[in-house]
Amino acid sequence: MSSRKQGGGDDRLYQIGEVSRMGGLSQRMLRHYDELGLMEPDVVGENGYRYYSRQTMLKIPVVNYLKMMGFSLDEIASMQRHSNLLEARKLLGRHLEICEDEARRLSERREAIVDWAELVEEANTVLRVRPSAVSVKFLSSCELLCLPSRFSGSFADAIVSLDFASFVSDVKNVITGPVILGFDSVDDAVRAASEGRECDVRLLQKPMHPISGETSASLPAGMYLSAYHIGAFEDMGSTYRRVLQFAQESGYRPCGMAYERFVTDFWTTSNPDLFVTEVLLPTETE
């Protein structure tokens, strides 16, 4: 036998098959560890057989733990070879930054999933109850990511907007919650829905990162007339007529912009029978 490093006195030496079973690693991986200098056998026989002391085998839990933390085998080998702790501190700091970035992304993903699940639950309730009444409710102000655009007559192009997706990427933000279309007037919204008429529109959605300036728009706090529309977006004219009739009969006067909040749309389903939209009109009493 030829010794590649100092053994542990009278410690028993274990063959690679025994080390594989005890450490939960394949023999191929143990040979790879040897090549990287992570865990060299204490003795290599003339026949090429590898033998390990128990002291050497204690490196296995260390390597496994560092792998669990996201370290590559090359990084682990580098840590074990360094002559001071600066390299370890640098590597740990680098992986801490990676973990923080992954945690942020995971938090954003969770928030988006929770918001989407709530929209689906809202839509399921509306589809089950099928409310026809117009309600009046207070909405708090909220800041939304905003891209001024042009309604082309296609709700698909407005809701799943390539321009808006590119805009969100350019401003380095992430969005969640329902797509909202903001029309300059109720008349614009009605004609867009009923006739597919082109008009200016604001593409709005909740951001996950802070926004300011030209990229933001505020949904103003106040009282809103609200009604759900079920079905194809091109049929929303009937819902607007229902809201406007209620306003006239109840002494309310829509003022300002008109908003369409898409609860379920092309992002969730291709079946228009499952589309649910909330029409929101800021209002004041006459």
Rank of each mutant, 00 (worst) to 15 (best):
S2R: 15
S3N: 13
S3T: 09
R4S: 10
G7S: 11
G9D: 14
G9I: 04
I16K: 06
V19W: 00
M39W: 05
V43F: 05
G45M: 06
Y52W: 07
S53V: 07
R54P: 00
V63N: 04
Y65C: 11
L66D: 07
K67G: 09
K67H: 03
K67S: 15
M68P: 00
M68D: 14
F71N: 04
L73A: 08
I76G: 13
A77T: 01
A77W: 10
Q80W: 08
N84W: 02
N84L: 09
L85Y: 01
H95P: 06
L96W: 11
E97I: 09
E100D: 13
D101M: 12
A103L: 14
R104I: 06
R104H: 04
L106N: 14
E118F: 00
V120Q: 14
V126R: 03
R128W: 01
V129N: 07
R130S: 09
V136E: 07
K137Q: 12
K137V: 11
C146K: 09
R150I: 10
F151I: 02
G153E: 06
F155L: 02
D157K: 14
V160S: 13
S161F: 01
S161C: 07
L162T: 05
F167T: 02
V171H: 02
V174Q: 10
V174H: 08
T176H: 11
V179M: 14
L181A: 07
G182F: 08
F183L: 14
V186Q: 12
A193R: 02
E195V: 12
R197N: 05
E198F: 04
P207L: 03
P207W: 02
H209R: 15
S218F: 07
Y224P: 07
I230K: 01
F233G: 08
S238V: 15
R241D: 13
F246G: 08
A247S: 13
G251L: 05
Y252T: 06
R253A: 15
C255F: 00
M257K: 15
R261I: 06
R261V: 11
R261D: 11
V263S: 07
W267N: 10
S270Q: 08
F275S: 06
V276P: 03
L280W: 03
E284K: 15
T285G: 09
